[in-house]
Design a protein around this nucleic acid. Structure first.
Lengths: 342, 342
DNA sequence: GACTTGTGCGAAATCGTTTTCCCGTTAATA
DNA sequence: TATTAACGGGAAAACGATTTCGCACAAGTC
């Protein structure tokens, strides 16, 4: 059981002091070239790895960023993570990922853990549990601790910090507009429960488009589903309408996929009888039959930008730059669930 | 700019020594009850958070586990992460996740970073880049550093450590057998490139089933596709066979989804003209039309077990328990891409 | 009264670095 | 011959906790 090689052990072997080793390893010119070379070579030989904990303690940094996300089995969030990973690697940071599993309690716990001196900053996407509960004290506490943080995707405007969000309003507006221009008039909206922020915004975009074309908003066409209950049952209600809607706009891919299965079962033709557009977060829309016309969110960019904002804050703690909110544009990908328009 | 509250600051405020504070906060009976209460109350008031770096440095632990995965935009791996998250939370650890993006170089870098005293152990799934290159020195180094590690899913048998893998052979055997028993005789295999370990094993299972039913292995029915090139073009070759195969067994969901699209385009009926089974790692098989009969891997369990094995090693460093390899059974989920058999 | 035991707390070492200040040599300059 | 300056390196404090001793005092035991 050979013991760990530390600066101390190297110093002893070589008959120099610890401070000399430290300086030599960072090529400090105050140490002669020979001594430096000797120490560096010896360290390499012993495969010396500096102890990150000691360095961080001394420098009062950690070069680690904490990430709190509600759900990881979600293609959108994983693309965000990839973007975060790209930027943090580029800037020399590591990531500690915590899952809140959409739960308020877990989110609070995660943040407590992460703020125990082990991270330099936080990247957070708020869980639905927290939004439902409406208690944001744990997030305000981060500010009190003077830890930089950036909210992404699931944000709350009244928290004073940098944010990166998708253009939910614009995406919904475009989707709805596209449906209208292809001739649809009774457009059902399958939305989240109203306490989910992005749901509110997507509904806004939907209404804006209707307004613009003089279509009156119709509450019986708006379905707010609870993701913790049976989705099939809830979405089936859309097809009990009389008359049927001529289009569906779903705020989440799963909702759309289920709507398609139900529509096909009812013998409806897509897109002839009913068109469909969905916000997407995964691959289902691409591989489902028919494939689904989709509002695509650029998770990778979102992750990259959020990480960049955060690291900028971390590294310029003094600068009192005002907080920014970056909005990432969405893109509409035409597939087979909508009619072709020229 | 109020400064961080530490034990020292608490001690000064209260006129006691740092060691008293330390003991009081862990309810050490050597400190009187009054003093303890007083210190605890005061600490809570100041919202004292112990500095994890200092504790870890002193105790020579970190309560952090490093995870290295090849790809995160992959439903299977995210379910594994969920399992890891569950178990690590339960046992009081945090997770540091690094993405190798299937690259040998990045994998080496990640491991170097993680082993700089910042983790107590490693959970690794080997990247395809590494398997292609065939250089495992970075993994052997971990052993030299006496850091516990567990390999999961993408494993290599000649590395002496604990492992958790899916029953790739059994899963492939069952899938193939099911196809044979439903009457198929010309079963095409869409496989990875041969340097991917799980590909080898799935092929073994496929061959075993053929053997058992006296069907001769036919190399022209085996397609090894390169994921870095155009999948459609590569998979299209399956449908250039003459005569056509009466079944396809795909080792990855994406391959199967593409095969379905191509088959439908050729006017083939599924499963009447051609049956299809696939190993799955995502949601495509469920939502595709027709839905795909699938070999399901239990990622969540795999993550849980891998984390448990690792933490057991970490916490019983002395015990010289021999290394284990756990195999997680797969399950065949019958859907619409295969014929019903009674 | 001497001795043990228990109680309550503090001093100091320790973990592995970084960093500031200081000291001794040698060579260059006045 | 002093005086500086440059050079090369070391001692020690610091980061924030834990932990082992040891000390002082009081109470109980023989």
């Amino acid at each position: 059981m050979k013991s760990k090689t530390t600066m101390k052990s190297i110093a002893e072997e070589l008959g120099v002091s610890v401070s000399t080793v430290s300086k030599a390893l960072k090529d400090n010119p105050r140490i002669s070239k020979e001594t430096r070379k000797k120490i560096q070579a010896f360290s390499k030989l012993l495969n010396y790895q500096p102890d990150a904990r000691a360095i961080n303690l001394r420098k009062n940094i950690s070069k680690v960023i904490g990430v709190v996300i509600p759900e990881i089995t979600n293609h959108f969030f994983t693309t965000v993570i990839k973007g975060i990973d790209y930027m943090t690697k580029k800037r020399g940071y590591q990531v500690m990922i915590c899952l809140s599993n959409e739960s308020y309690i877990e989110e609070v716990k995660n943040i407590k853990l992460l703020t125990s001196g082990s991270v330099d900053g936080l990247l957070i996407s708020i869980s639905s549990g927290t939004q439902k509960k409406g208690n944001y004290d744990h997030l305000f506490n981060i500010k009190n601790n003077q830890l930089p943080m950036v909210l992404f995707d699931r944000t709350e405007d009244f928290i004073a910090c940098d944010m990166v969000k998708a253009d939910d309003i614009g995406g919904a507006y475009n989707a709805t507009k596209t449906l209208i221009e292809s001739g649809c008039k009774r457009i059902a909206l399958i939305n989240f429960k109203p306490y989910i922020n992005i749901g509110k915004e997507r509904r806004m975009g939907y209404c804006m488009a209707l307004d613009e074309y003089g279509i009156k908003e119709n509450n019986s066409l708006i379905f707010e589903v609870d993701e913790e209950k049976d989705l099939f049952k809830q979405i089936e209600k859309v097809f009990n309408l009389n008359p049927l809607p001529d289009a569906i706009f779903a705020v989440k891919e799963d909702f759309a996929a289920i709507a398609i299965k139900l529509a096909l079962k009812k013998g409806l033709k897509i897109p002839e009888d009913i068109s469909l557009i969905s916000f997407v977060n995964g691959l289902i829309s691409e591989y489902s039959s028919p494939s689904i016309t989709a509002v695509i969110q650029h998770g990778y960019n979102m992750g990259k930008m959020a990480a960049e904002l955060l690291i900028d804050r971390i590294e310029n703690k003094t600068s009192k730059k005002p907080y920014e909110t970056k909005v990432i544009a969405t893109r509409l990908k035409h597939r087979d669930s909508t009619k072709k328009v020229n």
